[in-house]
Computed example of a mutant assay.
Amino acid sequence: MTPPRKALIAITSAHAPLYPDGKETGLFITEALHPFNVFKAAGFTVDLVSETGTYSPDWLSTTKDWLPEADRQVYEDHESEFRRKLDNILKPSDVKWSDYGIFFASAGHASLIDYPDAKGLQSIAANIYSEGKGIVSAVCHGGAIFPGIIDPSTGKSIIDGKKVTGFTTRGEEEEGILDTIKSWKRPTIEASAADCGATYVSPPGPWDAFTQTDGRVVTGANPASAHVTAEAAVKAFEAL
């Protein structure tokens, strides 16, 4: 039986100073908005969930270079479906995992902070994957959630033995924020993937659109990859 044509996009609840003048990281807007648009266009119902039912926008993701005008109009319109669902974001206790065929972890550097301990989100994803035989996907720093998404048949992360991508350590170095991540006592996505027994596949460059599919696990490298990663997740879903 094919899983339901519904997608659940996970959103980070965390926020922390990352940019100059103490500006904060949080949800990278397009990493949720672009997948939302892709899933809707493919005929999915889409819901948004975070571990605490709250979110903060990532400062950089709201700037002109990172939020194109068409996206800005949707994000700033409180009547748009995306913004309405963001303003009324669900908590894990509001969600029935069996309603969904795709779990998609959107990101922002803040994901490194809360996703590793987000037991509610991890449980939903694990059930969609193991019980529902659905797709689990993540973009950029969303892969921080994988260590806690356990396949009950192996007792290991669902990415154990799989090829995945995500934001590069080189990209962290170029942004000058590797020390900040270390201060959070969090591994980079590359290190986290290795810890899970996965093979990390690097994009051609830190900012190039790049996605990797391995069975029912679909990953993307960076903000530019959010759209193609969601498309790859839909393709994997259609192949079920």
Rank of each mutant, 00 (worst) to 15 (best):
M1C: 04
P3W: 15
P4T: 13
K6L: 04
A7W: 14
L8H: 12
L8W: 14
T12R: 09
S13M: 05
H15F: 15
L18G: 02
P20S: 02
G26P: 00
L27G: 00
I29A: 13
E31K: 02
A32N: 05
P35L: 07
V38T: 09
K40C: 11
A41W: 10
G43S: 08
G43F: 06
F44P: 14
F44K: 15
T45G: 12
E51M: 09
E51H: 11
T52R: 05
G53I: 13
T54N: 03
Y55L: 03
S56M: 11
D58F: 14
W59Y: 14
L60T: 10
T63Q: 14
E69L: 12
D71K: 01
R72W: 07
Q73A: 15
Y75T: 13
E76V: 08
E76A: 09
D77S: 11
H78G: 09
H78L: 07
E79G: 03
S80P: 00
K85F: 15
K85Q: 03
L90V: 07
P92G: 06
D94Y: 09
D94M: 04
S98Q: 13
A107Q: 02
H109Q: 14
A110E: 08
I113H: 01
D114P: 02
P116I: 09
P116W: 13
P116R: 01
K119N: 15
S123W: 12
S123P: 05
N127S: 15
E131Q: 12
K133S: 11
I135N: 04
V136E: 10
A138H: 01
V139A: 07
V139F: 09
H141M: 11
G143Y: 10
I145V: 11
I145W: 10
I145T: 06
G148N: 04
I149C: 04
I150V: 09
D151R: 06
D151W: 13
P152L: 00
I158C: 04
G161E: 05
K162C: 08
K163L: 10
T165S: 00
F167I: 01
T168F: 09
G171M: 08
E173M: 04
E174H: 00
E175K: 09
G176Q: 01
K185N: 10
I189K: 01
E190H: 02
D195W: 00
D195R: 02
T199V: 14
Y200N: 11
V201W: 12
P203C: 04
G205P: 00
P206N: 04
D208I: 14
A209R: 03
D214V: 02
D214W: 14
D214M: 05
D214I: 03
G215P: 07
G220S: 09
G220D: 06
N222A: 03
P223Q: 08
H227I: 15
A233H: 06
L240A: 11
